[in-house]
């Protein structure tokens, strides 16, 4: 069954849409407008504005990931307890939002959170003061959580359903209480799911520019917005690529950190 030519379409795909674009980014990032080698675009990350944007991106992504984990883990536990099959209705409900366009969902939040939006209308009807929710860091984090939560739940749920019930029963027979079972059996065995969930939420949150643009009202600058501006508004592809390289280093660093943790716990990341 060794037919390497069957892999040709994938090779073409990877070269055309992953390797070549990466090489372009590297080329642009390491050259100036006249094509000479320079490190200035990389060093530009030291600019206080860029550093601040990078820091804020990391912070918001960290908060969003933590909240996702706190929501997703108990939920996945409950789903496991309910003995849901992977095609069940509740699992479908969780996957369903992923079928919808990411942009559309974010725009919907804009309408919900707006000054005269649906939430504030309800608040006012209940006799409360309207709250400024849109165009804050909180709104951006909310958008990230909403958009990426399924990517946290599903890998954890997958990992949890793979745990053999006999292992848990055996632990109980040997006198372990619920806490010990969780700490010594369930948590370690679900670690690959947690790690893949964290990566799947943290990386897109950190690099997103659409969510911060729509829910931040253009008042909050994340590192993704800096890159978008350099490419789309000021045509400085060199600077945009330089900062993209920095961002890629952060993504690779966080992923390798995570996958190392994953290997130690046994089992490759799911998903």
């Amino acid at each position: 069954m060794n037919k390497p030519h069957l892999a040709t379409p994938y090779v073409v795909w990877i070269i055309g849409f992953t390797v070549l674009p990466l090489l372009f980014v590297l080329y642009y990032g390491l050259t100036d407008a006249s094509g000479n080698f320079t490190l200035a675009n990389i060093a530009a990350i030291a600019d206080p504005i860029h550093l601040k944007a990078l820091w804020l991106s990391l912070l918001l992504a960290f908060i969003a990931t933590t909240v996702c984990l706190i929501i997703a883990y108990p939920l996945a536990m409950i789903m496991r307890k309910l003995n849901l099959s992977k095609g069940s209705f509740i699992v479908m409900l969780l996957i369903l939002p992923m079928w919808m366009n990411h942009l559309l969902k974010t725009l919907a939040w804009q309408l919900l959170l707006s000054n005269n939006g649906i939430f504030n209308t309800i608040f006012v009807a209940l006799g409360m003061e309207p709250v400024q929710m849109l165009n804050t860091s909180g709104a951006i984090v909310l958008g990230m959580i909403y958009d990426f939560l399924p990517f946290m739940i599903l890998p954890i749920f997958n990992a949890l359903t793979r745990i053999d019930k006999d292992v848990i029963d055996a632990a109980r027979d040997l006198g372990a209480n619920s806490l010990t079972v969780f700490r010594r059996i369930i948590l370690p065995l679900s670690m690959p799911g947690i790690i893949s969930g964290i990566t799947m939420v943290f990386v897109p949150s950190m690099t997103s520019f659409v969510i911060s643009d729509i829910l931040g009202g253009g008042k909050i600058l994340l590192i993704g917005n800096v890159i978008e501006q350099e490419f789309n508004k000021t045509f400085n592809w060199h600077l945009g690529s330089g900062i993209s390289i920095i961002l890629m280093i952060f993504v690779i660093a966080s992923m390798s950190l995570m996958s190392r943790r994953g290997d130690k716990e046994g089992g490759a990341a799911l998903w």
Partner: peptide
């Protein structure tokens, strides 16, 4: 021109940040 664009871009980021 390129210098003008760079200046605008820098100030714009400063405003947004």
């Amino acid at each position: 021109d390129d210098t003008g664009m760079e200046l605008y871009s820098k100030l714009w980021k400063q405003l947004k940040a």
